[in-house]
Design a protein around this nucleic acid. Structure first.
Lengths: 332, 332
DNA sequence: CTGAAAGCGCTTACAG
DNA sequence: CTGAAAGCGCTTACAG
């Protein structure tokens, strides 16, 4: 069985039956007699025949493959959303190609160009940071114009006409902040390492709105992910605080650490709310109160939307919002 | 620009030049005059011509696409290894397809069957748990027989003839254990949630060997990832321990938490060594001493091996070992 | 320098 | 019920 896979042509010459007949038999066409079908199917099995997907794709114009284009997979949100996408897709006859943009606009554009012609039927995408900053969305509109289906999730672009699955970042932060306020916290700090992203901005705005509504000053500490601990620690040295909301995993761990290092008790002196996976939240000391984004569900919804659009060939644009919820644990 | 992408045929009829000429011009063939080349290239650019990858693949028998088949992406080791693979590949003219097996043998087999015929040129794979248990490796040998290149990393199968990139788990654990012993620790516990995996067994054996060499009893606590904290906590209630080595991220966080909950001081009473990412190690309290697997390098090496094999068409089987190193921080 | 023809592996009208 | 032919979009000997 060396060399490469067996083809219809080879099967045909072994059996002395035409290629068309072989093809039809393997596709269980009613045109072919049961007897020949049986012979052909058996021979195919014997030789472990696998149809060449590329050839099928060329012929049909459909590849049954979906591209998942995300910034990263290090981030537990995207890792889990990808898991949700892949779980849904693996129950179908579709496949996924995963591409990481690393927040690079050039990489994202290249990926769309590379895959748009013949390789995939659609794109599930979380728009990268640089694209959001540059506001250059031609690669999205081009593939849409070329008849591909696009579904954006989490990081979406309002002005692009495609399916969208988002979470209610603004409301979630606003509610979490209100909850802290109503339990008597007043000096509530926001620690963000994602202030440049739309999601980060949305969350920050939710926080600001709740603070302003309560007549409290909004205090936002912004830094890159490596400096978050130092920034938080420095702040606590010369300021008072009775609560911290951290906007991603790194910031959450950094906040916990800085508060402990400052000698304050959690949650007695300072409450901490963060964004980490459920599993991790349980394994931290104290167990962390989190805003749970339901990343698995978000991914799953995006995949469902894609598969439905591809199957029904519907051009209808759908929008789904998966609400984030507060999971209260020991840190608040 | 609605409908689908423009083809050579359409370009040809617009310009009144043959398809062959168009094709050659776009591939910058020396056969074509500069003048025609220029006309053709300009028209192609105008219409944003993208060659149909599927058609090119069918013709050439090469797809310049590599499958990355891994159990999961939630696990930070695989997430970072994938990052290493993707970083290397994105500097080449190859693409990657990522497939998650979720430790399912059936899924892994299906993936190999689906992609082996025409879709990819090679497979970079970390063998799933179930396949290791079943010891059924036909899907690997089949694609190798069919001329595909296979590179295994981290989770490798010795008996399969393919490129391999591994880490020295046995030695790394053995050395870490010795280090604890030589600093006076005697009651050293191993906490594992990956005892069913080859890597987990390798690591455990390294630990056992070092303990036995020192005449100390090896104590291994094994549990699933959700119970690790409870198991560790229960053990500490009725036994003495002066060090814990945890074999993955969940176990590491669980160990830290259980030790703190027991009222013991880290590292004074109990030293803790774990497996978490560098970033996370810094953000924990105390900062965690870790065995660093250099997952990025492992992924990068696997990708390099693959691309070289594909480019040189060499059938030479290479093996690379990327050594794990101990990063000592505050917890030991 | 340009083009007609064959072929990659498949599917599907159309004939017989 | 079976097969010859065309075609998906490309590349590449081969002719001219």
């Amino acid at each position: 069985m060396a060399g490469s896979n067996i083809t219809l042509k080879q099967l045909s010459s072994i059996l002395g039956v035409s290629i068309s007949t072989i093809s039809k038999a393997l596709n269980d066409s009613h045109e072919i007699s049961d007897a020949t079908k049986k012979r052909i199917v058996e021979l195919a099995k014997l030789h472990n025949y696998q149809p060449n997907k590329i050839a099928v794709g060329l012929k049909s114009g459909k590849t049954n493959t979906i591209a998942v284009v995300i910034p990263s997979v290090q981030n537990s949100f995207f890792a889990r959303a990808l898991y949700g996408i892949e779980s849904m897709i693996s129950d179908t006859n579709f496949n996924i190609i995963v591409c990481l943009t690393k927040e690079s606009h050039a990489k994202e554009v290249e990926t769309f160009n590379m895959l748009s012609n013949g390789v995939v039927d659609g794109f599930i995408v979380a728009v990268c940071e640089e694209t959001q900053n540059l506001q250059n969305y031609d690669h999205f509109t081009n593939v849409i114009d070329n008849g591909k289906t696009v579904v954006m999730f989490d990081r979406v672009i309002d002005s692009v006409d495609c399916g969208k699955v988002t979470t209610n970042d603004f409301t979630a932060l606003s509610e979490a902040t209100q909850k802290l306020i109503s339990s008597g916290r007043k000096e509530i700090i926001l620690l963000s390492t994602i202030h440049k992203l739309n999601v980060g901005k949305q969350r920050a705005q939710g926080y600001v709105k709740a603070m302003e509504a309560a007549g409290l000053p909004a205090i936002m500490l912004e830094s890159d992910d490596k400096q978050a601990g130092a920034v938080m620690g420095a702040y606590l040295k010369s300021n008072v605080a009775d609560a911290v909301i951290a906007l991603d995993t790194d910031a959450s761990l950094a906040a916990l650490k800085a508060v402990k290092a400052s000698g304050k008790q959690i949650p007695k002196d300072i409450a901490v709310i963060g964004y980490v996976s459920e599993r991790m939240a349980h394994n931290l000391t104290p167990e962390l109160t989190t805003i749970n984004q339901h990343s698995y569900t978000i991914g799953n919804s995006a995949a469902t939307m894609m598969v439905e659009a591809l199957r029904t060939k519907s051009k209808e644009i759908k929008q789904v919002v998966v609400s984030s919820t507060l999971s209260v644990r020991d840190s608040s």
